[in-house]
């Protein structure tokens, strides 16, 4: 196994992905993922310096829509699926203060 794949810190990755893992799972996933990544090390041997990346299977551009309303669903439709609800109006979660302004980080 080479250096790069040994770097895998499953605990850190699991935290990023918001997955709780027990010790057994951590060591199992560590083994699996290291094996997969060391197989994928084959990619580092290909000269890709002049190759552009492909993000999509189709090569179309500018797929946009006009600014017209399409309607919304009812609040009850939304809240019926919600695990916890406040005053029949809001979706309830434990209190959290965003690390940042009211809005995107």
């Amino acid at each position: 196994m080479n250096e790069k794949s040994q770097d895998v810190d499953i605990r850190h990755i699991a935290n990023l992905a918001r997955l709780n893992l027990n010790d057994g799972e951590i060591s199992r996933y560590e083994t699996d993922i290291n094996a997969i990544l060391s197989y994928a090390e084959q990619l580092s041997k290909v000269d890709l310096s002049d190759v552009s990346p492909t993000a999509h299977a189709a090569s179309i551009t500018n797929v946009i829509r006009s600014d017209e309303e399409r309607g919304s669903m009812t609040r009850s439709e939304l809240l019926d699926n919600a695990p916890d609800v406040l005053d029949d109006e809001l979706i309830k979660v434990p209190v959290v203060i965003r690390h940042g302004s009211e809005g995107p980080a």
Binding site: L37, A40, L43, S44, V46, L48, V51, S52, P53, T54, A55
Partner: peptide
């Protein structure tokens, strides 16, 4: 990884 994989895709 990701960028290389996308280039292989090309």
């Amino acid at each position: 990884y990701y960028l290389r994989a996308q280039k292989i895709r090309t």
